[in-house]
Nucleic acid binder design. Sequence first.
DNA 1: GAAAGTTGCGCATTTACCTCA
DNA 2: GGTGAGGTAAATGCGCAACTT
Length: 223
Amino acid sequence: MAVLPSNSSALELTISMPGFSSSSALPSSVRDLDINQVPSGGAEDEWMTMNIDDEEESSNGGPPRKKLRLTKEQSRLLEESFRQNHTLNPKQKEALAMQLKLRPRQVEVWFQNRRARSKLKQTEMECEYLKRWFGSLTEQNRRLQREVEELRAMKVGPPTVISPHSCESIPASTLTMCPRCERVTTTSHDKGPIKTAITTTTTTLSTKVATPTIQSRQSPAAC
DNA sequence: GAAAGTTGCGCATTTACCTCA
DNA sequence: GGTGAGGTAAATGCGCAACTT
């Protein structure tokens, strides 16, 4: 299962994790849209209070700077451009600035902030994902501990298991489990009662939580 | 070719402003 | 109407790489 944001420009992280819904991990995008709405009670030319000249004046100790609010169209174009490229070369920056009637520096800053927001969202998603994974592992651990306790309690005489291949009864002491792939193999070594008891739980392990994968995660080497 | 200085860029952090509950 | 929280544009400072002298 791949968890992907509704807005592909916001996140690049792809998380594969069976059994988990992505919806709760996604921050609401509604407010993002509202942020760029024209405030009620202000005409658009009044709303764009800081044009190029104003800003240059304020940076030289002039009147205090006013907050620039990008128009919907400006935001749309910037987002579109960001989707294509997360960084701009000087030519692209210049062209975009001209198109948007902004200074190249403003475009540059917007891209910096946009990259930072993407990264923040990605980190939040990773955090959420790790928390869920931790929770599922904790639960799995608890379940297995319980099983071990039960098996310890019913330990009477030499434990045996049914061979998956021949359906014959095999002394459990001859079975071991590969810790990596969790397959049962027969050996002649005696691993002691606890080890063999755990071995008998192999069938239950088939219900284990599948290891979630982040894009870069490598699959374990074949056993 | 090596070292020092310059420039441009990206990023992290901080500040200032705005909106909304 | 005042206020605090959250969002975001902009400023600042730092590190790094490429280039020049």
